[in-house]
Amino acid sequence: MITPVYILNTLIILGVVVCAILTVTVKRTLSSIICLAGCGAFVSLEFIMLQAPDVAIAEAAVGVVLTTIIFVVALRKTGGKGEDEK
């Protein structure tokens, strides 16, 4: 039985999988960090779909904002080059 909630749930899970694959396969390190933040945002939406708004708020605040900022700062300090960009 296909309902709109089912379709939305499937789209969110597909978004999580696509963002996770992009995180591994993308060449630039900064793009990989952005894809990781997108994966966190989709996971947060999935927590809302599963009726856990507490975990969704924590995931959106920590997994999307704080982790991305700390990764970007580390990237700036180490020169911004991954292994594929040499």
Partner: peptide, 25 residues
């Protein structure tokens, strides 16, 4: 809001604290 209404709405101390600390950023 998330901190002050922690006992009657979704959220709590940790989530609201992190949300308010992003003001520094």
């Amino acid at each position: 809001y998330v901190i002050l209404h922690g006992n009657i709405s979704p959220g709590g101390g940790f989530q609201g604290g992190v949300l308010a600390a992003s003001g520094v950023l």
